[in-house]
Design a protein around this nucleic acid. Sequence first.
DNA 1: GCTTCCAGTGGGAGCGCTCCCAGATCAGGT
DNA 2: ACCTGATCTGGGAGCGCTCCCACTGGAAGC
Lengths: 337, 337
Amino acid sequence: MTEGAPRRHPTLDEVAERAGVSRSVASRALNNAPHVSRAKREAVERAVRQLGYVPNPTARALATRQTGAAALVISGEDPSIFADPFYAQVIVGASAALEEADLHLMLCLAASDRGRKRVEELFRSKGADGVMLMGLREDDPLTGVAEEAEMPVVFGGRPVGSAPRWYVDVDNVGGAREATEYLVSLGRTRVAVICGRLDTEAGRARYRGYRDALLAAGLDPLPPQEGDFTEPSGSAAMAVLLANHPDLDGVFAANDNMAAGALRTLREAGRAVPADVAVVGFDDLTVARVADPPLTTVHQPITALGREMARMLVTLINGQDPTPLILPTRLVTRSSA
Amino acid sequence: MTEGAPRRHPTLDEVAERAGVSRSVASRALNNAPHVSRAKREAVERAVRQLGYVPNPTARALATRQTGAAALVISGEDPSIFADPFYAQVIVGASAALEEADLHLMLCLAASDRGRKRVEELFRSKGADGVMLMGLREDDPLTGVAEEAEMPVVFGGRPVGSAPRWYVDVDNVGGAREATEYLVSLGRTRVAVICGRLDTEAGRARYRGYRDALLAAGLDPLPPQEGDFTEPSGSAAMAVLLANHPDLDGVFAANDNMAAGALRTLREAGRAVPADVAVVGFDDLTVARVADPPLTTVHQPITALGREMARMLVTLINGQDPTPLILPTRLVTRSSA
DNA sequence: GCTTCCAGTGGGAGCGCTCCCAGATCAGGT
DNA sequence: ACCTGATCTGGGAGCGCTCCCACTGGAAGC
């Protein structure tokens, strides 16, 4: 706006020329590498300022073979899973950690076939310095792609079946166990479960935690009533549960959305919460706080999950070898149980 | 994993050599440009397959001066604004549209000073082919940066004050007006407003819509009670409102989170919704459906907002000149009004 | 038969940076 | 004086691609 002429971006050569040094020296000065005299370093800095020089990241990337970007790949058919703030929180954490390492965040939603193709291409063309991978389902085609990739890959949550070399996960089993133990400690003896999709490791692990806790308490686990982590599915699951086990007095739902759905069904069925039926959720998203009654739930450190994934990836990119991480959960008691 | 030797990626030269053609022909074949005989084209394709060749995007970017990526910049101090699914939805829409244009999505959360610096650098170094910019506050430093940038920029929502050349926005005024008119049509005469941050254009526009509607109906607008789009702020604002105007019979909240907060305060104050006080929200996020009672709210097409921003950006990148877009809203009546 | 044209071809010059390496400069030690 | 070894310096060769251009040869036009 201030300059009339829409001048082309100055290059490093022009900076060097203006500073009266060679391109090599200018480059070193810019990356503040050693072997540059104080005088020339300052001359370069001056030239940079005068010319308004900004290095071209693409050229740098080509020369260094480093893109300066990390990708966060979120697999999963329906973008509705993206409707709750879970991934948003992950992104906030990852973004902050990448910022510290001066890496850009590339976000890939691998929902369609085309999206998956592009992710595969990203892997094969080394379009990023590393990848964080989340939302994998059983037999997800991306699992194989990621394993073959000669690129740092950090998993967010473990994929079903295999345990990757590097991952950050939340203690799903422990959290679910704690939630269920809490229901038991309240004196509930007929505790049902609305589990999440059993083709995800989180869904399975949370069911495992529920079962373990009941078994340990000498109670009978009920067969899992499966939902898909959405509010309507929780509501529907609760209805089935109520029909099959009219005498139940506690419900553990594998996430807050489904717990909210369960609350709705219970309200409509005239069951008081927590007097008749105590309900515990999982996630501690906003919905847990605004639900009526506010949900007792298992808090998981979602932002930390994103942050740690990114940190682990950065470590990997720097050539070190981090160890997998399992983040703790914490029971938050509100009014629903 | 299958190959023992960790071979370097094959280059276009190697493909050309294997196919018995020059690099130029190979390049043309790859980009299926004209002036390549059928035979050679096939030879190149075969070589590509045999070698498992994948073009190096960085090298291509350097040569074409196109990065193949578009950035979505979300300005704003607190990442808590990211806690509701709003931006997640925008991302889903933008991602889908960019996928069609074969562009990658770069996500920049410009929360800290450092983050803002990086965005500025992105602009100045042309680190992306174009930028979508959202979440601008009054006097946001990024506004200036964006205006000076010699790069396609599409705004999501208009910044306070200036109206940029290209933007996609939601009809905030119209939506707020419709919501308020609806309250009036219900016979409510003392309609209060919990407005959003007035340093955002959305906050101001929604307040304007409220005021216009009341004035048009010959009623007195109440002074705006400001919240910051979060549930607690809505709850607090409602408490103040109740204290100052105990006789109010309707509330328009500038978003669903605040409406949910208002609902909570009203419940605690013993006011029946909608019998005593009718409440209308804005956004139609998940929280509107799970609130008790379910919220009557103004639905805005968030995914479409993201999609249209991306489409507009792609148009711009292709050298055409699109016109700004204002997306319609729609009142969704549930039980709260 | 001769131009005229154009699809097809490959050489080569970039794109803007990093980095190796050979040479220069200047200490200090003997 | 000389040599050794450190600190500087700039030339030049890439990184892997695109694209301009000059060239070929065969089909078409007269």
